[in-house]
Simulated assay, not measured.
Amino acid sequence: MRRVWGMLPFVLVGVALLLAPATAGLAWWNLVVQVVLFTAAAAIPGHLTRHVSYVDVAWPWGLVGIGLVTVLTSGPLTATTVAIAAVYLVMGARMGLWSLVLTVKHGWWRPGSPKAELPRYQYQRRRWERQGFRSEAWSVQYEIWLQGLANASVLAVPAFLVAADHDRQLSFWSVAALVLWAASYVLESVADRQKQRFAARGRRETCDQGLWGYSRHPNYFFQWMQWNSLALLALPSLFARFQDTTPLVAAVLALGLFFASWTLYVTLTKHTGARPAEYYSLRKRPDYAQYQATTNMFFPGPRKTAHVSASD
């Protein structure tokens, strides 16, 4: 039942997208795309290998699918619709291409590959044990299809709200939201590059330079900010849905817009983001505890003074 409740918000938002006349066509096409993609790229290989890591291939290419559905099936195209579709295509392709690199590197493309899961999904297995879930096969499929459901519902809400608003013009609000997205995208890329350069020097201590001196996970923070900018971009289009559908369906779509941001926040800080990463960092790097004591986990901020006891 815990897992059923976890899926319920995504189901409700997905149904609302299918029931709202302005988004129904987009939602049906997207549902088909996500089912086909997650079945072929994640569910089947996940069943054969018991690896959840295939979801890292399916979900970013699912964003590409949302972008394509938005631009190809929305009807009359506005500048805002083209812009948000391009954002989904860029975000999805960037992560999707990297996922293909990981697929080759870890040998996931070979059925029965002995290669281990990514650390975040190894950590997920610890959660399964603590929560009493005993079926590995079912747990793998649940994790995969929960993400597939998110792609078919809350993660598509910003794009489909904008695409359904055929009368919307490119306004100051839209430009500001897109500028926020672009700045966040660039800063996420900068954070990733800073970490790569630090590791390339062969240094084994914790990276605390550049953006990493203000947040322990600046790449995750700026990825989250990209989704916040998409929610802001879609906000003016949300009000139009109160005119062409029932108040309940429109209210669920409003919840979905908020839930897109919340889903990414929980994912990046707890589910497969910061928490599992720090679990392994504490075991690999002796100085990581000091880094935790002096640097914010997620939201960037100034360094703090660590209080170290005499016994330390």
Rank of each mutant, 00 (worst) to 15 (best):
83 A>E: 06
108 W>F: 02
63 L>G: 13
66 I>D: 00
97 L>K: 04
74 S>G: 14
66 I>R: 03
105 K>E: 14
68 L>V: 14
92 G>W: 03
98 W>Y: 13
75 G>H: 00
110 R>W: 09
90 V>I: 11
115 K>I: 10
115 K>D: 15
117 E>K: 07
68 L>F: 11
81 T>C: 00
82 V>R: 07
65 G>R: 03
68 L>P: 11
102 L>K: 13
94 R>S: 08
87 V>L: 12
103 T>G: 00
118 L>Y: 10
99 S>D: 04
113 S>T: 09
101 V>S: 01
85 A>T: 03
91 M>L: 12
80 T>A: 15
114 P>N: 04
60 P>E: 05
91 M>R: 09
102 L>C: 12
117 E>M: 09
97 L>E: 11
102 L>W: 11
105 K>V: 07
74 S>W: 08
111 P>H: 12
104 V>C: 02
96 G>A: 04
82 V>F: 04
60 P>T: 03
82 V>L: 07
72 L>Y: 03
67 G>V: 14
108 W>T: 00
93 A>T: 11
76 P>L: 07
109 W>D: 07
85 A>G: 06
63 L>K: 08
95 M>A: 15
61 W>E: 04
76 P>G: 09
62 G>P: 09
71 V>A: 13
75 G>C: 00
82 V>S: 09
82 V>C: 09
92 G>C: 03
101 V>I: 05
100 L>H: 10
77 L>M: 14
88 Y>P: 00
95 M>F: 15
68 L>H: 14
80 T>F: 06
103 T>Y: 01
88 Y>A: 13
66 I>F: 02
96 G>V: 01
63 L>Y: 02
65 G>K: 02
72 L>S: 15
112 G>L: 02
88 Y>G: 12
117 E>G: 06
68 L>R: 09
105 K>D: 15
98 W>G: 05
87 V>A: 13
93 A>K: 02
90 V>H: 01
